[in-house]
Amino acid sequence: MTKITEQSSLYDNLEDMSSKEILTHMNNEDKKVALAVEKVIPQVSILVDELTKRFLDGGRLFYIGAGTSGRLGILDASEIPPTYGMPFDRVIGLIAGGDGAIRKAVEFAEDDTEQAWEDLLEYDINTKDVVVGIAASGTTPYVLGGVKAAKEHGILTAGITNNPGSPLAVEAEIPIEINVGPEFVTGSTRMKSGTSQKLVLNMISTALMIRIGRVEGNKMVNMQLNNNKLVDRGIRFIVEDQGVDEETASAYLKKFGSVKKAIAVLRENRGV
């Protein structure tokens, strides 16, 4: 049976379509993605709960993938320190072929069943950690080998795949199987499959950060203030939370270096 990710597109003769027709059909396919993701929320919720327990005990989250899937894991991991002020080594993305594969594909790197575990060992991975394998096909050797080895060493594993019942779904303890149907361009899993993976990764890391206390109300109070836009956002957060003027908010933010600390001191000083 042909994998869903390899099934023929519902559209044909794409080269004969106008630009508007191509974009309209792509958009119609993209509309299916969020509905497919909705169906896996129960599995994602289980993963977030398990991650929360382990994170609060000092554990880490590892994403492993190849190609587009690997890049998406790295993207999600790289955004956690600036957005939530977490150390860079708490959420880690690994890609088959190493960092060089982020920009340029490394031939046959994804076919090595041993390398993912070797990559994980460089981080002294342990049973407090969680490994999430990402593979649209659900058959990528790099990902399967890493998930299998991690599970054998008592490490919790999850698998994000777009082929229900695939080897990754079977191997992972928490399978997240997102059936988005065939791609607009047959087999081009950077499209709907990649979009669905990005949505799920957003859900995993954002929910985790909220659950471990890195968000207050609806604000990123632990964000890194490394450009003027973010400083201005931090000032606005303080103004909205404490009702002080911008000058006062700016002074507290400059003095304490974080929105969270500035708000905490203002609350204490004002007896709130």
Score class of each variant (00 low, 15 high):
193 S>E: 02
194 G>Y: 06
111 D>T: 10
119 D>F: 09
167 P>Q: 08
189 T>R: 03
121 L>Y: 06
97 G>E: 03
169 A>G: 15
179 N>K: 08
123 Y>V: 04
91 V>Y: 01
144 L>Q: 01
170 V>G: 07
145 G>D: 12
142 Y>I: 15
188 S>D: 06
86 M>H: 07
178 I>Y: 06
95 I>T: 03
122 E>R: 14
148 K>D: 12
152 E>I: 15
152 E>M: 15
171 E>V: 00
187 G>V: 07
181 G>R: 01
96 A>I: 05
159 G>C: 13
184 F>Y: 15
136 A>Q: 06
193 S>P: 00
105 A>Q: 09
177 E>T: 12
184 F>G: 03
148 K>Q: 13
123 Y>L: 03
144 L>W: 00
165 G>Q: 03
80 I>R: 05
108 F>I: 10
187 G>H: 06
103 R>A: 13
122 E>K: 14
132 V>M: 01
79 E>R: 04
157 T>I: 05
100 G>A: 06
112 D>C: 09
130 V>T: 11
162 N>S: 15
170 V>P: 00
155 I>V: 08
107 E>F: 14
121 L>V: 07
149 A>F: 05
191 M>G: 05
195 T>V: 15
142 Y>T: 13
88 F>I: 10
87 P>K: 11
104 K>V: 12
116 A>Q: 00
81 P>M: 06
108 F>G: 08
164 P>C: 11
174 I>L: 13
153 H>R: 09
188 S>C: 05
108 F>H: 13
87 P>I: 04
124 D>I: 04
103 R>D: 10
184 F>D: 07
131 V>A: 01
96 A>E: 01
186 T>N: 04
136 A>K: 02
138 G>M: 04
174 I>W: 04
125 I>D: 03
134 I>Q: 02
161 T>S: 15
167 P>D: 12
108 F>K: 13
129 D>M: 04
120 L>S: 00
182 P>I: 11
161 T>F: 08
154 G>Y: 02
194 G>C: 07
137 S>P: 01
95 I>C: 08
99 D>Q: 13
149 A>R: 04
101 A>S: 13
132 V>I: 09
152 E>H: 11
147 V>M: 08
94 L>A: 03
177 E>Q: 14
105 A>M: 09
147 V>C: 07
98 G>H: 08
91 V>N: 02
163 N>T: 04
192 K>R: 06
145 G>M: 11
140 T>S: 12
129 D>E: 08
95 I>R: 02
109 A>D: 07
